[in-house]
């Protein structure tokens, strides 16, 4: 139990600007064994009428997860690697507080099964030293899983940022977003 070979030197990096909306990550995500064959990643058109821009969103695995803090059932747990897991099936009461409160719009509620599910960074794979499914199939590099050194060599003009400002609230995450060099945070306001 809890035997793990989670690689702590590898991290998740997202560059939404590189997303081409191909949905390959979505198909791959459904292969994750912890999701019950349901995709937990979100690929959206940002504003279909005005622009071809698409966005890709994985769980950012907040250092102090808002979803867990607003959960009335105490169903969402963060493990020692910083992975915020899907709601515990035994405890989740499907109130959807997490869905409404998550600043990144990540958790998904499945009403028939009374369960919230979310990306848990392919824990079946990452806990065995493998990369998450979505990152292995992303053709454009919007989703990258590896070491900081590998990424720095490939993208010298970008910097990994894990601080987000939503109005007056600052959220720190385990997952990074690739920003222009020199940036220290992503301000969403």
């Amino acid at each position: 139990m809890q035997t793990t070979t989670f690689k702590t030197d590898e991290e998740f990096f997202v560059d939404p600007q590189r997303c081409i909306g191909c949905h390959a990550c979505e198909m791959a995500c459904a292969e994750c064994e912890t999701n019950g064959q349901l995709p937990m990643i979100s690929v959206d058109y940002v504003s279909r009428a005005d622009s071809p821009q698409t966005s890709v969103q994985v769980c950012m695995h907040c250092e102090d997860p808002v979803c867990a803090r607003v959960c009335p059932a105490d169903a969402i747990q963060k493990d020692e690697f910083g992975i915020v897991h899907s709601a515990t099936t035994a405890r989740c009461i499907a109130c959807a507080n997490c869905v409404i409160a998550c600043p990144f719009g990540v958790p998904k509620k499945f009403e028939p099964t009374k369960l919230m599910m979310k990306c848990n960074m392919c824990y079946d794979r990452t806990s065995a030293g493998r990369k998450p499914m979505c990152a292995t199939v992303c053709p454009s590099g919007a989703l990258f899983y590896g070491t900081r050194a590998q990424l720095a060599a490939q993208r010298p003009a970008s910097v990994a940022v894990n601080v987000f400002r939503f109005g007056r609230e600052t959220v720190r995450t385990k997952v990074n977003v690739m920003m222009p060099a020199g940036a220290t945070e992503l301000i969403v306001d």
């Binding site: 600007q17 979100s42 966005s55 990540v106 940036a183 992503l186």
Partner: peptide
């Protein structure tokens, strides 16, 4: 949730 994801993507595009 979709609105939040779009807000994030827009903010990222604006920064880029």
């Amino acid at each position: 949730p979709q609105g939040k994801r779009a807000a994030l993507a827009r903010a990222h595009l604006a920064a880029r």
